[in-house]
Amino acid sequence: MNGAVVAETVRRHLSSAGFIAYLLFLGLIGLLASGFAMPGSLWPSLVGLLAIITGSAIVGPEFSTGALQLIVSKPIRRSVYLLSRVAGVFACVAMAAAVGLGAEVAGRLLRGDDAVPWPRLMTVFAGALAASLLTIAMLTLLGSVTRAYFNAAIYLGTEAALSAAQAVLGMLRIRGQAMGDFLTSHPGIERGLATVDDVLFASVPAELTGTWLLRIAVTIAVALVLACAAFERREVPYGAD
């Protein structure tokens, strides 16, 4: 990990009016969520959205601006640079999650709630962080092989395609006929699709289990290892003759 890259990544976000506005918006949503009976509503989704926005800009745009050529000419391993960028972006997303959590807790205290539902809130907070890191890792992997913001398009496209495929297969199974019968007799197809969806685009369960956390950790590790391997070998062309 390179401290200069992490610090620069955090500084870049904190000096962005858009990022600060997003934090304020998240705080307001956290306050609003404090009025709901179900703790930890709304703001975790915004944290996930922020992870997509910030995660998509880890390396892609730097290819286009030419900034990456300067970086790779420096004595820093590309994988170290990449992981440091991930750490910086994750720190910013964690900051946003903390704002959401803090606002909801503050709202509940101001409303005079008898007891802040700490266990549930902490579960939601930890789940949001884990899911965000997974999102960032997946976008980093895609960003290490694509340019600009194509990684976000591929990420969202794949997520939508998996959901659509599951819905279509479900409908075909219910309709019966030859295809429906085939799907009924081969439940592994739908189960496999659901597993791939859950592994790549994890939804946070009501209770965080060790198995879920371990699966997320393994997926993140695999994604980052592959991203580093791709980025180490990737050509970084610049200019034109």
Partner: peptide
Amino acid sequence: RARTGFVPERVSLGRRITGWQFVRYMARL
């Protein structure tokens, strides 16, 4: 790499970074 210097034809590292921050970041790298 630690002994290499490179000046590209065009430089860009974001719009908000100041000249001082840019050179300092590069110096640390």
